[in-house]
Design a protein around this nucleic acid. Structure first.
Lengths: 371, 371
DNA sequence: TTGTAAGCGTTATCAT
DNA sequence: ATGATAACGCTTACAA
């Protein structure tokens, strides 16, 4: 008989249950379940009635309950070393776009800022059994972690870098770096410095290495000398770019006429400090980065564009397709990159003739309060 | 008797269940449950044995199951209009810090980019019954939404702006704006423009309004004239700052000697375009923002600092304390703000004498490819 | 088309 | 200190 459920006996949880709806509609919970989920086997009339009542009552299925019953949580996990950095926040937005469209939830696991207590992630209550699939953003994983992940076989994909044995989506870092360096060489530069990324924490693992390789190979191929003193590193942030500029310029000896930075943020750091030091961009120093950060256009930064949001969106789509039963949906794939020439690169002073468009008017940016 | 569970009959979900552990340890599931959760009523010996076996088997409780049983999901929802903007990404990191420390998960609901299909959020399967508490980031909520939220009474708090009847944490926007404007006035400026935020989407609701009020009141109080033509708006992005600069400068008539921007990103847009147009900062134009964005120090931008990460961390702590049974933990609170004087502000040309430190050397930033 | 009932994996109440 | 056992709210064979 239709009777109000007697919940709140113990925990006292709030909310309308499927039984309440069933009772109010005078049908069984099974029918309500089918009706609200849009499954077949329900007559149009009953369905409509049920839907109406469900809406009136404000019924929404308990995710815990259906999760228990189906073994699916309808949420995917996104693992990121940071969230407040361009690549990651864009990737999260992209992933969310797809998730949102397909009615999935996004559970964010941020490893940054927490020291390296990442053990918790896999051993304790976090990821495991809480998500249907995992999207790893630009992070290295230890062997144990990979094993663990494979044991609890949920679909997995990494975006923005390679992890052995795992499908990944990202640009061809080697080619992207090569493209950037060739642009500099084509402009006539021969004295080219490198500001590569470093692997302080766990992030970006072999991405820095591959970009360095791209730089070196293209330089060698062009018969150009790569100087040990012009090989600098940073952690992909603006600040590290600023620091690198000073290490480069405060040292006695010849200066490069161009610098290839492994990320736009580092390139911006170089630009800010160079500007401040009176080194004119691009007349004295050409700067190119990788990413096409949100601020790059405004700054006129020449760069090799990539779209982390699209990469993550595609990766998420693969994950969801796999969960939808389309086996083999998850697979590695290269994302496109594109050279965007703006105004931080120009022929070096010697080769004025080359491109007539480069010479920017003198403008100014104020000095900051740094040491 | 100890027998291996017969799961995988239907769904075939993977994973070790509490029964497996109980069987292996020769105890009941009740005991395992107490043991793994560190509850009393378990002898040290049994506990140790159980913990060992659980570890060996790689057991971890199903969140759906315990969620069903306890009525708690151990995850809190974070509602944000964007994730790839400074304020939001920082706030998310801050919230996550607290959540992580207290073993909670973070479910991210990003409204941006999805048009305005936010109805789904409250009506359908999203927020509701999926989270134990909700952190709203800098967004307006409709009356219905607030009602709905209050009906399903989970702890709720908003960070970065006011929503009527809801507890909130954020800076005193009025005071922050006033501080910024006073700094300009103290420097000797009288011709001050305003670049305020606008409420295109739903975000930032009354924050823009309050900041405008702060500006106007301080101007009035100082007996200064606020010109209609110098009242510009933007959407808090760099791009909108660039556009605002052009609207301001491409118009005939006198120009301001200083501009107060409602956000650092907009201030940066002003700086980039001013620089490009040959308007020297701070000699020709002083610029001040609000936020202390990650790039602000590198750019030398004078600003009124706020810390969204700390605001969100505190808000999250309140939410969690409330869930821990400490009633009354959630309440409104003002977060601190602080004037950070850097080098984009200086006395106007007329009043050279005022502060001797201002004059930055001429430096340069290249022109971008904008129209 | 609809209903019955057996799970799903935990937690929590009561006994023991 | 430990063990039965009844919820928790939903899904899904299977039966009607």
């Amino acid at each position: 008989m239709a009777r109000t459920t007697d919940r709140a006996q113990r925990g006292g949880h709030s909310g309308v249950s499927i039984e309440d709806v069933a009772a109010a509609a005078g049908v069984s919970t099974a029918t309500v379940s089918r009706a609200v989920r849009g499954l077949p086997r329900v007559s149009p009339a009953t369905r409509e009635k049920i839907l109406g009542i469900a809406a009136d009552l404000g019924y929404v299925a308990s995710s815990s309950a259906s999760g228990l019953a189906t073994g699916r949580t309808k949420t995917i996990g996104v693992l990121a070393p940071f969230v407040s950095r361009w690549f990651f926040s864009k990737a999260i937005e992209g992933s969310d776009r797809q998730l949102h469209a397909r009615q999935y939830n996004l559970s964010l696991f941020n490893l940054g800022g927490h020291g390296s207590n990442r053990e918790r992630l896999f051993s304790k209550t976090m990821v495991y059994k809480q998500i249907d699939a995992l999207l790893v953003l630009c992070m290295a994983l230890t062997h144990e972690e990979i094993e663990h992940l494979q044991k609890i076989d949920i679909p997995l994909i990494v975006v923005g870098g390679h992890v052995e044995e795992c499908p990944y989506i990202g640009i061809d870092d080697y080619a992207a770096a090569a493209t950037a360096v060739r642009h500099l060489i084509d402009l006539g530069h021969t004295e080219i410095a490198l500001l590569h990324g470093d692997d302080e924490t766990d992030l970006n693992f072999d991405v820095p290495r591959v970009r360095i390789q791209g730089f070196q190979d293209v330089m060698a191929e062009a018969g150009l000398n790569v100087r040990k003193e012009w090989d600098e590193w940073g952690d992909f942030t603006v600040r590290s770019g600023q620091d690198a500029f000073h290490r480069l310029w405060d040292r006695p000896g010849p200066k490069p006429t161009a610098i290839f930075c492994a990320s736009d943020e580092m390139a911006m750091g170089i630009i800010f400090e160079a500007t401040r030091a009176g080194v004119k961009i691009p007349e004295d120093l050409s700067v190119i980065g990788i990413d096409d950060h949100d601020f790059s256009e405004a700054m006129g930064l020449t760069t090799v564009r990539q779209r982390p949001d699209e990469q993550a969106e595609l990766a998420t789509k693969m994950l969801l397709d796999e969960l939808d039963g389309i086996a083999g949906s998850v697979h590695s794939m290269l994302a496109p990159h594109e050279l965007i020439v703006r105004t931080t690169t120009a022929p070096p002073r010697g080769a004025e003739a080359a491109a007539r468009k480069g010479a920017a008017p003198e403008t100014l940016i104020p000095r900051a309060g740094r040491p």
